[in-house]
Design a protein around this nucleic acid. Structure first.
Lengths: 228, 228
DNA sequence: AAGGCTTATAGTCAATTTGACCATCAAGTT
DNA sequence: AACTTGATGGTCAAATTGACTATAAGCCTT
């Protein structure tokens, strides 16, 4: 096969970086400091370098922006409508990341003059097809959170069952029964109890758990699938 | 954001086209007629045109190859390792398609000198990262078939419950209990009985059903999710 | 035409899981 | 010491699942 060189002008990456605070999902946006989209809040992103794999580029961009190394991250897909970007043919690859609150501090990166978290319900109008990318990511999150144990990537390493429940309630937009939720989760054996308890609460302190990846991997080999 | 133009050389599409016959999954490959990969069987693919969205390109390529318009199709993801393609930096977008047996006839397309179906178990070594793309697609299929009603896209429009069961057994690599499988599927109300029966079988003819997309869409709105 | 094959389809039943609850417990607060 | 708040533990009927058994419809042979 012969390739018609340079049939597109450029290939970018745009990141959906989700966080969770006060019972609500947040998304990290940056304010563009130059170009046509100056002043607008948009998804953080950047360009793929020539000698860098697509996934390396995503890791690099995510790191530059948040300063964090071990973020949960996956590729969301390609957004390639002809007129998604003005003037030139730019195709972008959407990435999807979940960050823990302890990593909520962030760098202001590259060409962004500022960066901050928005509640999902208060995301402003964004340029290009970023709103479409976000919708696609939220849909993906809703689906995935029910079929794979990824919810705790939005929580501190040690978390209470109730915090986890709040994540599910926020993502799925439903209320869940507390005893039933805990019963279901505990039976899966994916939560390893740490000996610690919650602190600084004005009521009985809840036990803290952490996700037991080792056990999950073992169970998965035996055919177990997470379902909620 | 300023884009460093043409940081990659080209962007291609590669298609995973799955079929189902004789209780086994098939995949459609083409034999390359020119270039470095001459003579090798590989995934069918092509280039994205300047004035064409990525998804339009996928539809076009799939149509050129199979001659079929309404194929079940979705984007699988981007494969962008630096050295996945010799000499140049070519990034590819994997697409994932399921075709019905009545559409098994195909055109030999563009630069492919030949095209044919391979059983999944007999796929030859493929050039570039095509084996990786295939593995990724099979994994995706295994997951998706359990969480969304897409299995019948590998069957004729009207099919028997047992045919459907065979699809699941082939994809998942397990044996399923016949009465239990039928009970579960029937309870979902996603299969509309056609008045017809199987023909030319040397035993009691089974009823034919078709997937009832309308009902599925309604149920989905109400929060139903397909699970098997 | 009768009996035998083969696969479809129906039904049974115990074990497990779910959904909707109520009850008790362990802190901190007044 | 009583009260408040949320954690944790149980109960129970209903629904679902998994492992089977039983019966029904056809063709195929003799």
């Amino acid at each position: 096969m012969n390739s018609p060189d340079n049939i597109i002008d450029a290939l970018s990456i745009d990141c959906l970086i989700f966080g969770f605070k006060k019972g609500e999902l947040d998304i990290l946006l940056v304010q563009h400091g130059e170009g046509i989209s100056k002043g607008k809040w948009a998804l953080p992103g950047g360009w793929i370098r020539y000698n860098e794999s697509v996934s390396d580029a995503a890791v690099r961009l995510l790191h530059d922006l948040t300063g964090v190394e071990n973020i949960y991250m996956e590729q969301l897909g390609v957004f390639g409508d002809v007129d998604r970007y003005p003037q030139k043919r730019v195709i972008t690859i959407g990435y999807f990341a979940l960050v823990k609150p302890e990593n909520y501090k962030l760098h202001a990166g590259f060409t962004a003059s500022d960066a901050r978290w928005f509640k999902l319900s208060e995301v402003p109008k964004m340029p290009y097809d970023h709103t479409q990318i976000l919708d696609s990511g939220v849909k993906h999150l809703k689906h995935k959170v029910r079929h794979e144990p990824i919810g705790f990537n939005l929580l501190p390493r040690k978390f209470t069952l109730h915090q986890l429940q709040e994540v599910y309630e926020a993502v799925l937009g439903t209320k869940l029964d507390k005893p039933n939720f805990r019963r279901k989760l505990m039976k899966m054996n994916l939560l390893a109890p740490s000996k610690e308890k919650q602190k600084d609460v004005s009521h009985r302190a809840a036990s803290l758990y952490k996700f037991d990846k080792r056990t999950y991997d073992k169970l998965k080999e035996k055919g177990f699938t997470f379902e909620l």
